[in-house]
Amino acid sequence: MKARVIVTLKNGVLDPQGKAIEGALGGLGFAEVSSVRQGKVFDVELAGTDKAAARTKLERMCEKLLANTVIENYAIEIA
């Protein structure tokens, strides 16, 4: 089973890297860009076919390691 975990910074947490990318896009002429927030994507392959069980496991992985819930949110997509 394939899953994708998306980790993003919480609202209100300053993202200097996103800001720098935003500035660079502006410099390239993409004047319509008003904000960029940088995040992380993890493609995880898991054994088994039970999607509900996989989601529970992935939530635990996020809480224990993949995200720092002090500053980050996570979303899980299972294919």
Partner: peptide, 11 residues
């Protein structure tokens, strides 16, 4: 310890 350490604001 509480909180987190993030990328330096000046990058």
């Amino acid at each position: 310890l509480p909180g987190a350490l993030m990328r330096n604001a000046g990058l």
